[in-house]
């Protein structure tokens, strides 16, 4: 259970082999500037590495950035690992090059939001804050 006084803790991760990390790093900075505690995994993270880091760092949120088109293969594996480890309460959001038609299938497996290109960091901060607070209040 989250202690409401501590800052929101976010793991920003780059799953798969994709090296495009401009977006991930900009978001990481924006979240930090908004008062959150941010851990960035660096690139080339396997699903196991990401869920392990999330558990170790005791994060409230996992934000993943993926631009290589591998989202439908990689993200379901991460979601099922999280479930297996009883980490269903972690908020998961995704950004990158993700076609509209793939967004609902990703939400169906438990991803809370898919942020497309052009989303403002302000909107992401707000979404994370509202969602985490809602979960804590529930």
């Amino acid at each position: 259970m989250r202690d409401n006084d501590r800052p929101i803790r976010v793991l920003v991760a780059k799953p798969g082999l994709d090296g495009h990390d401009r977006g991930a790093k900009v978001i990481a900075r924006a979240l930090r500037d908004a008062g959150m505690e941010v851990i960035y995994t660096g690139i080339r993270q396997s699903p196991q590495m990401i869920t392990q880091a999330a558990a170790q760092e005791d994060v409230d949120v996992i934000g993943m950035s993926i631009l290589s088109g591998a989202h439908l293969e990689i993200l379901p594996e991460i979601m099922s690992l999280l479930r297996d480890q009883g980490m269903d309460d972690v908020l998961v959001v995704v950004g990158g090059i993700i076609p509209e038609v793939d967004r609902q299938p990703l939400k169906d497996i438990g991803i809370s939001e898919v942020f497309g290109p052009g989303t403002s960091t302000g909107a992401i901060v707000e979404f994370i804050r509202d969602s985490v607070n809602q979960r804590a209040g529930a």
């Binding site: 798969g16 082999l17 994709d18 090296g19 080339r44 396997s46 290589s68 088109g69 591998a70 989202h71 439908l72 293969e73 990689i74």
Partner: peptide
Amino acid sequence: DLPTQIGYDSDHLLAKGEVGKV
């Protein structure tokens, strides 16, 4: 594709989901 660029064959564990994508 990314596995070719990084030096993994298409059947490598880390190539999952990335074969033929970019």
